[in-house]
Structure formats: C-alpha cells, structure tokens
Amino acid sequence: MSLRSAFVPASALIVFLLLWEGLVRANGWPNYKMASPSDLGPAFTKHWDLFLVMSWQTLWRTVVGLLLAIVVGTGLGMLMGFSRLMRDALYPLLVGFNAIPKATVVPIVALMFVGQHDFNTILIAFMISFFPIAVSVSIGLSTLEPEYRDILRSLGASQATIFWKIALPKTLPEFFGALKVAVTLAFIGTNLMEIVSPHGRGLGALFDSGKTNSDYPLMFAVLVMLAFLGIVLFYVVVFLERIFAGWADR
C-alpha cells in the first residue's frame, strides 16, 4: 500500500469526524440527542472488555452465517444456473422469501428455537444474505456462452470438466460482487437478532443495554464498532477477490 492510498482515506475519516464533532458542538446538542466523537473514547475505555467479548460474538456468528450462505447460495445458484426447470421452479420462491422483511422473521425464529441464541442468530444472518449469492451464481452460470460448451463438449469433456475449467472461474467475479453485498447483509441479520431478542450476547445486546441505561455514547460507540467490523470483513472479501478473481479487474 502506498503512502497516498493510506493517506487519502485516513484524511477523509478525520475530516468526517471533525465535521461530526463540529456539528454537535455548533448546535449544542446534549448527549441524549447525539453523541460526538469525543464522547466515544471514554465509552470505549469504560467498557473495553465488553466490547472485546461482544464484538467477537457478533463477528463469529456473522461469519458462520455467511459461510452457510455461501454454501447454500452457491448450491442453489448451481441448481438454477444449470437447470432451466429448477430456475423456473425456485426463482419465484426465492424472490418471495427475500421480499419478506427479516425483522418479522426474527420473533418467529426466536420462538421456534427458544434459547438457542447462537443458532437463531446464525440462521437470520444466513437467511438475509444467501439470496444475492444464489442469484449471482445462477446468472453467472446461465450466461455462459454456448460456444464454450460446444468447444469443450466436442473434445469429449464431461460436464464436471466444463464446470471446473470454465463455468466456476467465470462466475467468480459475480460471486465476489454478491459476497460484498452479503457481508453487509449478514451483519444486519446478526444485529437484528441480537437487538430484537437480546440474550446478553453480541454488539446488538450491548446496544440494547445502552438504550435501557440511557448511555447514549455507548450506543454510538457500538455503531462505530459495527462499522469497523463491517469494514474489516468487507476488505477480507476484497482481498480474496484480488487473489481469486483479480483477472476481472480491468
């Protein structure tokens, strides 16, 4: 990373924080209206042990939900990409499922699997994030130029060979594009469950406790922490994308 590529985003961040601080001070907003960046430091140091534990819980459950979404999403995408019949059958179902706001699913899931908080949270993270992956993989596969198939099949290649040599690598750019969206969605899913059905676990629960105790700086600190985790995970995906689909970068 060059000095410039680190300097530009860093200064943008500083400018953003200054504007935020300035806005709060200029308006004389009290903490219960809007905390300012200078309140965040104390909030973090006061609860640093909680932040560590809760962040880890939010992170691992999000990642597990995401991995599940990758496995199931890729599987569904392959089904729909290779079989016209499956696409016609599954697509409307998936669209309908995806259209349901997940906030309404949270209480249902919480009731169905009472007490299994880890499982519930992972389930919601998964449910909210597999859709873009399934769609992108199916589109990637079904838009494979017929010429590829003809060239390889005329040489006697099997369907599996065509998949590994051409269909799969060709789909990777779309897959990673969808994964970037899915990362953000999975975080939303995890936090929905943690906030709506708090079991004292995860950043969502910490946010909720800030709410009950009217600790507004804590609530803002949680938001910042969530943003930070989201950025980290997003760039992990970007990093993997560079390795596996860097060729699509033009």
Binding site: E145, Y148, I151, G156
Partner: peptide, 27 residues
C-alpha cells in the same frame, strides 16, 4: 463428439483468466 475435430466461432470466446498461451493449450 470426437476429439479429432477442432472448432472456432464468430465469437472467439477466450478465457479471460488465462494467458493467450494457456488459452491455446486448453484442448
């Protein structure tokens, strides 16, 4: 299908993640 046939089309369909040499070696 028999591998004693070679095909080329109007759309050259080269694989973008392979070099030209690797593309030619695919068959």
């Amino acid at each position: 299908p028999r591998s004693t046939v070679g095909m080329a089309f109007q759309n050259p369909v080269l694989l973008e993640w392979r070099s030209i040499l690797q593309n030619v070696m695919l068959p």
